[in-house]
Amino acid sequence: MLTSIEHMVKAASRQHCKVSDVVLEYEVLTSGRPRDRIVEKMHKRLSIMLLSIEKGKRLTERSPTGLSGGDAARLLSHSPVQDMLSEVLARAIAVAEYNAAMGKIVAAPTAGSAGVLPAVLSVIAEHFGATEEDTVMSLFTAAGIGMVISYRATLAGAEGGCQAECGSASAMAAGAAVELAGGDPEQVSWAVASALSAQLGLVCDPVGGLVEVPCIQRNGYAGAIALSALYLSLAGVKSHIPADEVIDAMYAVGKALPESLRETATGGLAATPTGVAIATRCTGCHPR
């Protein structure tokens, strides 16, 4: 079991390899499956992630509830600035919209936060000219970070709020992106710590209990935070609090959140007059 970011980073530094190599080695040992087969399986996941970006970008229909759809396309054509940030936002929102429209996605770590990793990793891979093989490997880094969070804390919004879902996705994306951009294992851990730190306390308050408002936009913001964490980390800005301790703090904060802010759709934006009105209107809408 991968139980600590520090251990992963030290193992990678000691063996002069990447965090992704440590995680892949762990998977080979624990699953008993051949390395090639494991990498191939991860490659398939990357392909579906990239496809979900393309499908989401072209989405013009509204979701079955009528609450979402078309915002990624809007960003792509009307963003005031076209840069890495606008691309991360558009791609993360594209996948999240595609998810809401019953498209095929890869939960990473959850369906509700599925847009973050594809967006950040594809944009970083393009910018730094990384190969598809490197991008596949960076998903192992993301998985290792997610495993540690799952062990020390939780990845479920119902348990830890949105910080546990989009926050974790953001930390996973930040760490994986740093590796993809050529950062060392230590820098991976700084990015994990700072991305998650930026989202501590984020509540899970889905309007009508659906994975749309505010979840789709939060995928974009989680991607933007991951991108920021990458900038900080690659510039050599360290996190004062080590990643493992930030993860532990995230769990403690999640435990302290009232139930109304943990995916029950009874607090936060879900409980606003407009949130309640949307939920009421939506119960009756069934366009199929």
Binding site: G103, I105, V106
Partner: peptide, 11 residues
């Protein structure tokens, strides 16, 4: 790792 990056699913 596929419990974290996965499942592949319809949303």
């Amino acid at each position: 790792v596929f419990d974290i990056i996965g499942p592949i699913m319809i949303g």
